[in-house]
């Protein structure tokens, strides 16, 4: 069993279920990517794993412990970090304040972690006194990822980190994400740019209509003719 795993998750937003017995998992130092067509329930699966949705069936296990009943804030304390797809920075606060707020639950010195984040995203050091709302899309995503890293999470969950950024910025973001994974953090992300994402993925999950359609290594999914034809545009 993986370090973080959502098992047989079935849930929705009140009405019909969106996810049907969907299972996702990731291990430390690994990048797991969730891909699939629009409306497959990728973002819903992330929310379910982070406790923002009530599971009707199934459970979420972290390091062998059932955390299904924990609220999102408690999951943060247990070492999970989440970068939502939209509204993922405090627009009216400076970059530095965004990072400080990311580390809100920590009572120890956060200077070293902030240095690490600035090391990972050098542009943020330059812009640290600027309100995050004034940054470009790519820079905002860096702030968003940086904010989530400030708690020194064991698992980082990203919901479409490259949405709305240019291809060059996307490649750069992916490079940074690989760097983060190399430090031993487990990364679980949803991606719209399936090909590029599967290229850097250790593990890939293809969701279709809320169900697991394929699960394999990133390379194997890229090589799978059926997956390529159906989801990766040939």
């Amino acid at each position: 069993m993986s370090f973080l795993v959502g098992e047989n998750m079935t849930c929705g937003y009140g009405g019909a279920d969106i996810l049907h017995a969907c299972t996702l998992g990731v291990d430390p130092g690994e990048i797991a990517v969730v891909v699939g067509p629009n409306g497959a329930g990728k973002s819903t699966a992330m929310k379910a794993m982070f406790g923002m949705l009530h599971l009707r069936e199934g459970r979420v296990m972290l390091d062998g412990v059932d955390i299904s009943a924990l609220a999102p804030q408690e999951r943060v304390i247990h070492g999970m970090g989440f970068v939502p797809q939209n509204n993922n920075v405090f627009t009216g606060m400076t970059v530095e304040e965004n990072l400080e707020m990311g580390a809100f639950i920590r009572r120890d010195d956060i200077a070293a972690t902030m240095e690490q984040v600035f090391g990972l995203f050098p542009i943020l050091r330059e812009k640290r006194k600027q309100p995050a709302g004034e940054l470009s899309g790519g820079q905002r995503q860096q702030v968003a990822v940086g904010r989530a890293l400030m708690t020194q999470p064991k698992i980082l969950m990203l919901d479409e980190p490259t949405a709305g950024v240019s291809p060059i910025v996307m490649d750069e973001l992916f490079d940074r994400i690989i760097e983060v994974a190399r430090t031993g953090i487990a990364i679980l992300m949803v991606e719209q740019n399936a090909k590029q994402a599967l290229n850097i993925a250790d593990k890939g999950f293809v969701l279709v209509q809320g169900r697991n359609a394929y699960k394999d290594t990133g390379a194997a999914l890229m090589a799978n003719a059926e997956v390529r034809r159906a989801f990766l545009g040939g």
């Binding site: 804030q73 939502p84 405090f90 627009t91 400080e100 707020m101 809100f104 639950i105 708690t151």
Partner: peptide, 23 residues
């Protein structure tokens, strides 16, 4: 202050404040 900033953060983006562990 930390508390003051957490108030601004909560006012700025409630959901993200919750994700950051602000009570």
């Amino acid at each position: 202050t930390r508390t003051g900033k957490s108030m601004r953060a909560y006012s700025d983006n409630e959901d993200l404040a919750l994700l950051s562990g602000i009570n």
